[in-house]
Each structure stands twice: as structure tokens, then as C-alpha cells.
């Protein structure tokens, strides 16, 4: 048992959980707490991954790659936040979806920089200040620390007065404006923050997988992250952490069911989908969503 948890298979999954926790928590900040349906999250993830990988391949130390990943992903966030300030709901969803596709098209077609569809192989191991993370265990500890910091950071934001304004904007923009809040500023800051966090996840992902290409950062990836957020519960940090953990782990035990080879893979995907549907039928607000919802209501009633 212990041996299993120390194996690269288990560590690989734990690292992926850390990465997806960062992604879902940062997306929850945008979708859940600020009410902006963002379907371009994989783009920020990808920008971070490419920024970090390209600099690492050029020989820069990891801390520079890391900062660049955060910076460029945040820049991407600013690029979508400003033009779409006036959009809400479905319209914002479509605009961000478009941004995601543009980012993917750039990654695919800017061949001289990103090598396009050929992808970037051989991304080096993380090393900073003379320390190299050679084993998967060390990488996991690093990813875990980063993930915990991001989760703490985001929960700090949402509990702060700033976070309360975000929720006010989500519930009623006009009311928030009426009490003198600059909603544009808040929206831009929150999108940039979420995007920058996704950039961190991208950097970890690139150095973990050691190969990135544009097919990793598609709409399907965004949908997976949105699933994590919705499954865990919208506007719940705890929910996002659990949602990401479940969706990363869920396909794995299905490998061990001993299904007949000819249809094992197809059945595995079907069971995965069926479990998701069941969860959504019986817990439509997500695992922690309902509690959060009632809690908020009862507070209002008081």
C-alpha cells in the first residue's frame, strides 16, 4: 500500500491533482465568485505552459520561467478582460470561448516560436537556486506547496472585502455600482488574477509532462475544468479542490475493473460519463454548492 503511494503512478496522479486544483480554484474565482462565465481558461493554462517551457528550453532558470508564466497568462487575462467588460452571461461566454480558440490558433500557427503542431519536447526538470527536482516525489512536494499557496491566496481574496464586492457584482451589478464600486476595475483584476493562477498551473504542467503541444489546451480542457468547478460546487473553494481531485482520480479505478479488452476503453469512458451525470442529478449544486447556497440565504434572512 505504502509502496503504491510512493510509486510514480500515484505521484503522477497526485501532481495532476495539484495542477487541476490550481486551475479549478482559479476558475472558480472568476465563474463562482464573480459570476463571469469564462470558457477560455485553457488558453491561460496554455499560455503559462508555453511561456515557461520556451524560456526553460532557452536555458533560463526556473524562477524566471515561473514569473514569465504568471506574467504572460495575466497579460492574456488582461487582453480578454478589457474588451469584454461590457459583456455578461452567455455573451461573455462566447467572447472568452473565442479568445480560447484564438490562443490555440496562435500556438498552432506561430511555428517559428512554438514549433506549432510539432510541440515542444524535452522540457527540462525544474531547478532553481542550485536545487534540481529530480524525482517525482520532489516535484510533488513542490506542486503541493504551490497548490496550497494558491488555494490560500484565493480563499484570502474571497473572504476579504474585495471578495464581498465580487459577490455583490455577481448578484447585481447595478446595485454594486450604485454603492460606488468601480465594477470595471474589480472585474479586470479578478480575471487577471485567475488567469495568472492558471499560468502557474501551466508552468507546472509543462515541466511535469515534459511535452506540450496545442492539442492539450483545447476547449475540452476548459470544459473539464468547468466540470470540476460545477461538480465541487460553484463559489466554494473546498468544492473546487474536491471536484478537481475526483475528476482526476475517477477514470483511474476504472482501469482495474477487468473489463474485456475489446470494449474496456469505451466502457471506461461511458462509466465515467454516467458517474458524472449521476452526481449532477443527485447533487445538482455540486458537492459543496448546496450548503454554500443555503448558508448564504440564511445569512441574508438574518
Amino acid at each position: 500500500m505504502l509502496e503504491f503511494f510512493a510509486s510514480n503512478y500515484a505521484l503522477n496522479l497526485l501532481i495532476l491533482i495539484c495542477i487541476y486544483v490550481i486551475l479549478s480554484v482559479s476558475l472558480n474565482l472568476i465563474i463562482g465568485y464573480s459570476g463571469m462565465l469564462n470558457l477560455g481558461h485553457a488558453a491561460f493554462f496554455g499560455i503559462g505552459a508555453y511561456a515557461s517551457a520556451l524560456l526553460a528550453l532557452a536555458g533560463y532558470p526556473y524562477w524566471i520561467c515561473f514569473i514569465a508564466a504568471v506574467f504572460f497568462a495575466g497579460l492574456g487575462g488582461a487582453m480578454i478582460a478589457y474588451p469584454s467588460l461590457k459583456l455578461r452571461g452567455d455573451y461573455l461566454a462566447i467572447a472568452t470561448l473565442g479568445f480560447g480558440e484564438i490562443a490555440r490558433a496562435v500556438m498552432k500557427n506561430w511555428v517559428s516560436l512554438t514549433r506549432g503542431p510539432l510541440g515542444l519536447p524535452g522540457i527540462p526538470k525544474i531547478s532553481f537556486f542550485g536545487l534540481t527536482l529530480t524525482t517525482k516525489f520532489q516535484f510533488f512536494i513542490f506542486a503541493l506547496i504551490i497548490a496550497i499557496l494558491v488555494v490560500l491566496f484565493v480563499s484570502k481574496i474571497v473572504k476579504s472585502p474585495f471578495g464581498r464586492v465580487l459577490r455583490a457584482i455577481r448578484e447585481d451589478e447595478i446595485a454594486a455600482q450604485a454603492i460606488g464600486k468601480n465594477i470595471k476595475k474589480y472585474k479586470v483584476i479578478v480575471v487577471i488574477t485567475g488567469a495568472a493562477c492558471a499560468g502557474i498551473a501551466g508552468s507546472l504542467f509543462a515541466h511535469h509532462i515534459t511535452f506540450i503541444d496545442p492539442t492539450t489546451f483545447t476547449l475540452m480542457e476548459t470544459i473539464l475544468i468547468v466540470c470540476m468547478v460545477v461538480l465541487g460546487g460553484v463559489a466554494s473553494i473546498r468544492g473546487s479542490v474536491i471536484g478537481a481531485t475526483i475528476l482526476v482520480l475517477l477514470p483511474e479505478p476504472l482501469r482495474f475493473l477487468g473489463l474485456p479488452t475489446s470494449m474496456a476503453a469505451a466502457l471506461r469512458v461511458m462509466i465515467y460519463a454516467a458517474l458524472l451525470i449521476l452526481l449532477m442529478i443527485y447533487k445538482p449544486n455540486g458537492i459543496f454548492g448546496e450548503w454554500r447556497f443555503r448558508h448564504a440565504k440564511s445569512k441574508e434572512a438574518l
Partner: peptide, 11 residues
């Protein structure tokens, strides 16, 4: 997909 293949080979 790189991510899926990585999980698979590790398993």
C-alpha cells in the same frame, strides 16, 4: 493525448 498516455504508461 500526452496527459492520458502519461497516466497510462505510469500505470
Amino acid at each position: 493525448m500526452p496527459k492520458e498516455a502519461l497516466n497510462a504508461i505510469q500505470k
